[in-house]
């Protein structure tokens, strides 16, 4: 893909807040990122880092209340998805942005056959009639590698295995030829061999169909294998963002560094103990005034308590990190 291409999805300063009894929880704080056409953006971070909430905020999938997308812009196809009317947003959702969720066992409606569930977006967004939608649904099931597609349309989700169900979910998400596919931990609930199959399938589909993909995961191994660019999230913020080789080769945020150290090596001597990141993820009450990672950070110094770092360009092209510490200079950033 050309480097200078306009992003298909451009998110700026997104803020999402959950209103709870004990006050506001700032789940997404000034998240800015973009995805270029055909690009595969990996989003990594531990549980509760705001990966899924960010993606669901984009297309209004969070229940409100308690969630409230307070600020920001989500530019997609020349319009701001946070401002357009709900009906137009509904057509973007499922029509131009497809979503695949984590758990295929529960993500399909148990009382409708998969044919109905695949045909639903086709009829809503593309206005196909029943027989056209059916033909397209067969095509889609074949595309995602389900054998005997025509007959399986009548089957119910419980008649499919986990991996097959995730294929059905992917078929649903791709039904209307979306420009962006958001995959929210699509392989987490599957066993390893099925994971590999699904990853291969997505790679293949991306080549065939050319849509951009946002792949949310906490599995760095998966990301290394498929992503073009990686965005690391922590405490509701994007802490580092870089092309995949750059990120793995030259991490510039202490969290990313720590994260990479937690991956056990299969080569060399067997590790006595697995590496962990000490401490707990932050509680996101109140707007951040300091670095969210400071309590667990080996590089912490005064400025980290006083000021929440913003992302600054570091290292190679397209690489930025939100840290006051400059690893190259071995000391605090100047300015």
């Amino acid at each position: 893909m050309p480097d200078g291409a306009l992003p298909v999805l451009d998110v700026r300063d997104l803020k999402t807040v959950f209103k709870t009894r004990s006050g506001e929880v700032h789940a997404v704080n000034s998240v800015t990122f973009d995805v270029k056409p055909g690009e595969l953006l990996g989003v990594v971070g531990e549980s509760g880092s705001g990966k899924s909430v960010t993606m669901m905020s984009l297309i209004g999938l969070l229940p409100s209340p308690p969630a409230d997308v307070k600020e920001g812009q989500v530019l997609f196809g020349g319009q701001d998805l946070l401002k357009i009317n709900p009906n137009d947003l509904r057509h973007v959702r499922g029509g131009e942005i497809g979503f695949v969720f984590q758990d295929p066992m529960t993500s399909l409606n148990p009382v409708f056959n998969v044919g109905f569930q695949i045909m639903e977006p086709l009829r809503i967004h593309m206005g196909l009639n029943k027989s056209q939608a059916r033909a397209r649904a067969v095509e889609l099931l074949e595309l995602v590698g389900i054998p005997d597609a025509g007959r399986r349309l009548k089957d119910y989700p419980h008649q499919f295995s986990g991996g097959m169900r995730q294929r059905v979910m992917i078929a649903i998400a791709l039904a209307c030829d979306p420009k962006v596919l958001i995959a929210d931990e699509p392989t987490t609930a599957l066993d390893v061999t099925i994971q590999a199959q699904i990853i291969e399938l997505v790679k293949e589909l991306r080549e065939k169909l050319g849509m951009a993909i946002i792949w949310i995961t906490h599995d760095l191994g998966v990301i290394a294998g498929i992503a073009d660019r990686v965005m690391v999230m922590y405490g509701g913020q994007v802490v580092e963002q870089a092309p995949v080789r750059e990120l793995f080769g030259n991490p510039q945020h202490p969290y990313t560094r720590a994260l990479l150290q937690t991956i056990p090596s299969v080569r060399g001597a067997r590790a006595e103990k697995l590496n962990v990141i000490e401490g707990q993820p932050p509680i996101l009450a109140g707007a951040p005034t300091a670095c969210p990672f400071r309590d667990r950070c080996p590089q912490r110094f005064e400025r980290c308590d006083a000021e929440n770092p913003v992302r600054r360009a570091v290292g190679g092209a397209g690489h930025d990190a939100a840290c006051h510490y400059d690893f190259k200079a071995g000391g605090p950033h100047v300015g």
């Binding site: 999938l61 509904r90 959702r93 993500s107 399909l108 409606n109 639903e120 809503i124 649903i172």
Partner: peptide
Amino acid sequence: NQDYVRTARAKGVR
């Protein structure tokens, strides 16, 4: 609150 409800919404169902 089931996941399939979220899926239905993500499909753009009314």
